[in-house]
Amino acid sequence: MLGFLINRLLQAAAVMAAMTVIVFVGVHAIGNPIDVLIPPDATQQIRADVIARYGLDRPLVEQYLAFVGNLVRGDFGRSFVFNVPVAELILSRLPATAELTLLAVLGASLLGIPLGIYAGYRPRSPVSRAIMGASILGFSVPTFWIGLILILTFAVELRWLPAGGRGPTAVLLGVPWSFTSGEGLAHLLLPALNLSLFKLALLIRLARAGTREAMLSDYVRFARAQGLSELTVIRGHVLKNIAIPIVTVFGLELGSTLAFAVVTETIFSWPGVGKLIIDSIRDLDRPVMVAYLVLVTFLFVVINLVVDLVYGALDPRLRPGAAG
């Protein structure tokens, strides 16, 4: 077990190291940020000042080493555009993304898993077919387009919910949140719905496939032969068995929800990290891009690690000393 853990940690470290190189070299190749930072009519003196201030005149290797050294200290540099420390900038945008992502994932699970179980339990019923048809839509229609339809329907036509922005926030534990007030929640609802639909479709499919497999299994038949009620069969047998694949994919999908938040935040003008990264790509705000990519990679590595460990905890067959 310890060996497995060490092996995994080493792998994770290697991935992180590789990613910082790729990110740094890649981002450096994008274009010349000086052109963005300095108006074309600036004097030579101002140009030289800016270049010196951001260390853009030093060799690439030196810049990279300085960059890694700073990363380790948690210093991601200053944003070219906002002229504040990047760490601070990202941290200030993080709560907005966090509450959006969590609400989306929570909603998708609470709705998607029961729907999927139902569709797997009664695969031939019209309701199940409707659920599966809808899940194909949620799977294949681009997120931004669904967001547009949501705005058109609920904000423009019905005027039930605001079309964008975060609304009023209330400070809780020193962090501003939207979900604590009714109006903030109203602002949160549409973007969260938009973000959750893909996940919802995915969870429906996963839960359906797992349920279908379990329902056709001998152990469910045996459980029924002992007189277990259908509810007990689903709660005791099916749920426990589909938990394994769902937790796995779910963990991995948490990261991709962050990725899709980029799109959703742009459509709904949600001031989170996703909107920040899009803006920084447009403005060639290099330190922000780098920090975002490194953080996302870090998040992925951590999630992968956790999923590996949880998987072992959930499936007794994979536990150490489990040889039959």
Partner: peptide, 20 residues
């Protein structure tokens, strides 16, 4: 495998940002 666990949209976004 590692790349598969990384969302395609994010990857495409980064690459477009890098390549122009």
């Amino acid at each position: 495998d590692l790349q598969l666990s990384f969302p395609a949209i994010l990857l495409a976004l980064i690459l477009v940002a890098l390549l122009g």
